[in-house]
Amino acid sequence: MDIKEIQNLIKFVAKSGASEVKLEMEDIKITIKTGTEKTETTIVQAAPYANVPPVAAAAPVAGNSVAEIVTAVKADDESKYLVVKSPIIGTFYRKPAPDKPNFVEVGTEVSVGDTVCVIEAMKLFNEIESEVSGKIVKILVDDSSPVEYDQPLFLVDPS
C-alpha cells in the first residue's frame, strides 16, 4: 500500500462520517479515527518491513486535519477532471457478471449514456451511465465495494 492509497483512504473516511476504521492486511495495519475536531491516523508495518520506519503517523497540524490537507492537495491535481458520481447507495461492480469483462478501464473513451458500472441496491442491479464524455483517467472505487449517494466513482478527462 503506497502513500497515495493511504491518503485516499483518509479522505474517504473523513467524507464518510465514520468515527473509526481499522484495516489489517498481511504487512500493514492502519487505524483511522475521526472526530469533530481532528483526524488521527496510525500506521504500523509488520514483520517483512520491520527495519523500515512507519510510513506515516499523523495528527492535526495548525488547526487542519490530515484529511483536509490531503483534500487540498488532491483538489489541485484533479480539478481539471470531470467526476462520475454514484446516484444511489449500494454495492459497486465494474462488470455485469463475474465471467464478463469490465464495463470500462483506465483509458477507455466514454460518451454520455455509456454504461460505466452497475450498483446493486436491494437485489436490483442498476446500470450507471456516464453523464460526461471523455477518457477514464482514474477508477476511484474497488470492485464489490459499498458506495454512498453522490460518492465519486470515476475521474474523466473531457479533452
Rank of each mutant, 00 (worst) to 15 (best):
Q7D: 05
N8W: 12
F12G: 04
F12T: 11
V13Y: 00
A14G: 11
A14S: 08
G17R: 04
S19D: 11
V21C: 05
M25W: 13
D27Y: 00
I32L: 15
K33D: 03
T34H: 05
T36E: 14
T36F: 03
K38D: 00
A46H: 06
A47W: 15
Y49F: 12
Y49M: 14
A50W: 04
V52Y: 15
P53T: 02
A56N: 07
A59W: 03
V61I: 08
V61D: 04
A62V: 02
V66H: 07
V66I: 14
I69G: 10
V70C: 03
V70N: 10
T71H: 09
A72Y: 14
K74M: 12
D76Q: 09
K80T: 08
K85E: 13
I89R: 01
F92P: 05
Y93W: 13
A97K: 01
P98M: 08
D99H: 09
E109H: 14
V112L: 13
D114H: 09
I119Q: 13
A121H: 12
N126D: 10
N126W: 09
I128N: 05
E129Y: 08
E129D: 12
E129M: 05
E129V: 02
E131Y: 05
I136A: 02
I136V: 14
V141S: 12
V141E: 02
D142P: 07
S144G: 06
S145Q: 15
V147Q: 15
V147Y: 09
E148F: 14
Q151V: 00
P152M: 02
F154E: 03
D157S: 10
P158L: 10
